[in-house]
Design a protein around this nucleic acid. Structure first.
Lengths: 185, 185
DNA sequence: GTCTATAGCTCGATAGAC
DNA sequence: GTCTATCGAGCTATAGAC
């Protein structure tokens, strides 16, 4: 693993744990076992490094989601698999947490991957739900786009509840709740 | 308005906008129009000031929610009023955003009001939903606690989606989505 | 490509005058 | 109760040797 890669991985971890404002170049270097010279040789500064880290995380997330939503099963089964997928709930969502960071949202380059990831996710879920509705899994009046937004929101909000409670339980409760509503729709 | 009050109000605003890590005593003082001496006379430091600010915000939020959930109307009407209540969606939730702050969650004193507020909110919503179920508004197999978690999660996640999109629209979509599911449950 | 040294700044907090 | 002066530490970044 090259120094550049180690720096990106360290940045990913720290952005996830502490956010952009709470992450210093110094901390990144120490976790990566690299010096300042190395970091500023490969990247122009903190924003540049963050961009590489966020891009990699967004890519990974899309691939992971696509593996489930593009897989076999009914719409309900796939949405259920997505919501119940194994997760380190208390760590939260590495992309979602960036929306709380004013400096990330103020920088168009850093903000774009966040916006695009959630846009893609909502569209992808809406397609699965529309497929299920057309196959008669749901009531014909179910609105795919709206319901997709609800499902993604339950996930993101579930992380918030779990962190507030200091326990993964509310996350799973919220997910089970929306699945119960969905399977009777 | 006393200097102490101005300091608390400034802290509330800054915690909402920038989080705990992103908020400096210096910035608080400047927004409050107070000097360092004043701040450190009234408060022992940043954590003490944050505690006062968070406590006040939590109290305000509970009062606002109780006004709606304790008001007249069916369960669906009250939950709907809560979700559709006028909000500055893009600012997010002043309590929910604190869950993303590692230093807040690491300090038991700062964390307690966050944990308690969400605990209370879920219980309060569960009570409203149980009432509705017992009155025959919902299917008898609706789980109040689970569904309450879902509703709160939709709200918190709705803020995340809205901020990611740079528009309040996904928030309202997610809220409408869960209300549509709920009114057919 | 990586190192050390250093810059100018802000951080959170304390001291002591008034 | 509020002011100014100051502290030691960490921040992001640059310079220049190797």
């Amino acid at each position: 693993m090259s120094a550049s890669d180690r720096l990106i991985e360290s940045t990913r971890e720290l952005l996830w744990e502490r956010g952009y404002v709470g992450t210093s170049p110094r901390a990144i270097q120490q976790r990566a076992g690299a010096g300042q010279g190395s970091m500023y040789h490969h990247f122009s500064g903190k924003p540049d490094l963050a961009l590489a880290a966020i891009g990699r995380t967004a890519e990974e997330m899309r691939a992971g989601v696509e593996e489930i939503l593009g897989g076999p099963g009914t719409a309900v089964e796939r949405v259920s698999a997505y919501l119940r997928r194994e997760r380190e709930v208390l760590r939260g969502c590495p992309i979602g947490r960036l929306t709380q960071d004013p400096e990330v949202m103020a920088d168009p380059a850093l903000r774009r991957p966040v916006e695009e990831t959630f846009g893609w996710l909502r569209d992808r879920l809406a397609a699965v739900l529309a497929e299920g509705r057309d196959r008669g899994e749901f009531d014909a009046c179910l609105d795919p786009a709206r319901t997709a937004a609800t499902v993604v929101a339950v996930l993101q909000g579930g992380y918030v509840l779990a962190r507030a409670a200091g326990s993964p339980e509310p996350f799973h409760e919220a997910a089970d709740g929306v699945l119960a509503l969905l399977s009777r729709a």
